[in-house]
């Protein structure tokens, strides 16, 4: 292969790889996702900003406490006691996965695998 054709092919490849970023830079910003917050409960286990940024860190800590360390003690926050449980605590307030989890995760194309195993059933949610 000639040097010029190698350069040309490399440039084309680079352009192809960069195309999604270029397209998104040129297109107007999409509206931020609006997850629906529970109406009856005001306080979460951590401040909203922290939950927004680090909810997976907290979930992983809870998971490791319960599964790996056998530490199932409930956590007391603001006088309320919470079990360290995704379905048993989080989903008790954030009842609708579609209106809460999925809105942000969908907008960001991030697909955590929680629900491959943990059971979310619309009809049993009040």
């Amino acid at each position: 292969m000639r040097k010029s054709s190698i350069v040309l092919i490399s440039a084309a490849l680079a352009a192809l790889l960069a195309s999604p970023f270029i397209v998104s830079l040129l297109s107007p910003p999409s509206p931020p996702p609006r997850p629906e917050l529970p109406r009856d409960v005001k306080e979460c286990v951590r401040p909203a900003a922290q939950m927004r940024a680090e909810h997976m860190v907290l979930l992983h800590q809870w998971r490791d406490d319960v599964v790996r360390r056998g530490d199932r003690r409930e956590v007391m926050i603001g006088g309320v006691s919470y079990a360290k449980s995704l379905t048993g605590s989080c989903m008790k307030c954030h009842r609708h996965k579609e209106k809460f989890c999925d809105r942000c995760h969908g907008a960001l194309s991030s697909a955590p695998k929680c629900w491959d195993c943990h059971v979310y059933r619309k009809e049993v949610r009040p």
Binding site: R72, T87, D116, C117, H118, V119, R121
Partner: peptide, 29 residues
């Protein structure tokens, strides 16, 4: 079947190994 699933205990997913866990969730409490 959807109605036979116990929602308080996770199922497993394809491609993992599983076995009896001595009901750790019950023994711990």
């Amino acid at each position: 079947s959807e109605d036979a699933i116990n929602p308080d205990y996770p199922t497993r997913t394809r491609g993992v190994v599983e076995k009896c866990d001595f009901c750790a969730e019950r023994l711990d409490t």
